[in-house]
């Protein structure tokens, strides 16, 4: 079986399983899966930068957290905010932040880029952390989930955890398709070229800075989408959402699943969050186990689960021949 067909089948089976899950699963697991799918959107947005464009950002959580804060700041205490107003505002906020930060950080490359993205995310972290307006280190609440009512018609109700689940599932699938389309477009060809050899892309006539900046903004906006729904799900935001630990975990999801594939980050999000649950059940000092796990993955699984599956597939094919 060719790899691309195996992948299509796996994706389809996965999608059907996720679509049917709420019919059987209980509330706790439905909400856990919702959280995982939100993180999968976040991880895909980061993979667009890391895996496809070669931009190792350690500050991607800034856009995730910022969009959540936009919702928290716009949501009234005694009523639900409109999804159709707050979501565009949150995405716009994340995009604008990505544009400004991207304009500065993309002037650097390599190791500098890693350090500078981290530093700018930290700057936003402190901006929110130190300001009374945003609730400081205590964070802020979103008292009601945004309402999707439009001219009196309620398409879906985010207060209903089943509805919320399906909205997020649709968004995850939508983001997957959207990024897939973008990657096959002329724009996608350019960013992949930049990852491979930016210098040559310039000598072929591509103003690479512009393309990297647009890519950074797309990634930041999609991260904002994930951050918005994360805030909506938990009804609470705090500065930790922007912290570099959040960025680090997302990077780990990308690597664990298999970077440079869109399927990988989704897989990585599932694996990381389920492992987190597992380790938390084992010991109070689960971060110790997680740290060891991350080190082990870097040492022994550099191409992630996707790479492992591909390797096993090739092996089986070789045996069948």
């Amino acid at each position: 079986m060719p790899a691309s067909r195996a992948l299509t089948i796996a994706l389809f089976v996965g999608l059907v399983a996720l679509a049917l899950f709420p019919l059987f699963g209980d509330k706790y697991y439905i909400q856990l899966l919702t959280k995982i799918m939100i993180m999968a959107i976040f991880a895909m947005s980061l993979d667009l930068l890391v895996g496809y464009t070669g931009l190792v950002s350690l500050g991607h959580a800034a856009f995730f957290g910022l969009a959540g804060y936009v919702l928290a700041m716009m949501a009234p205490q005694d009523a639900a905010a409109s999804l159709w107003i707050t979501l565009p505002a949150a995405l716009g906020g994340a995009a604008l932040a990505a544009l400004i930060i991207g304009f500065l950080v993309l002037r650097t490359s390599g190791i500098y880029f890693i350090m500078v993205t981290l530093a700018f995310a930290q700057m936003l972290f402190f901006f929110i952390h130190d300001s009374k307006y945003f609730g400081g280190s205590d964070g802020a609440y979103v008292y009601f989930r945004p309402t999707a009512a439009l001219t009196g018609v309620q398409l879906f109700d985010l207060e209903n955890f089943n509805h919320f689940y399906y909205v997020v599932l649709a968004l995850m699938a939508g983001v997957y398709v959207l990024l897939q389309v973008i990657l096959r477009s002329p724009f996608g060809a350019v960013i992949v070229g930049i990852r491979t050899n930016e210098h040559r892309m310039r000598s072929l006539g591509y103003p690479t800075f512009r393309y990297k900046l647009v890519c950074f903004v797309i990634g930041g906006t999609v991260a904002g989408l994930a951050g918005y729904f994360n805030a909506a799900q938990f009804g609470f935001v705090n500065p930790e959402l922007l912290s570099w630990h959040q960025s680090g975990i997302a990077l780990m999801m990308v690597l664990l699943g298999g970077m440079g594939t869109l399927f990988g980050p989704v897989l990585g999000a599932f694996a990381m969050i389920l492992l987190e649950q597992l380790f938390q059940g084992l010991t109070e000092h689960w971060l110790l186990v997680m740290g060891g796990f991350i080190i082990a993955v870097v040492l022994f699984l550099p191409h992630g689960l996707y790479g492992l599956a591909a390797q096993l597939g090739r092996k089986r094919e070789a045996e069948n021949d």
Partner: peptide
Amino acid sequence: QRDHLYQVLLTYGLILVFEELRSV
């Protein structure tokens, strides 16, 4: 011989280990 990404993640794993050992 590895990309920066691996360096970032391995040393990030080390941070978690050191932080948690400190806590223990």
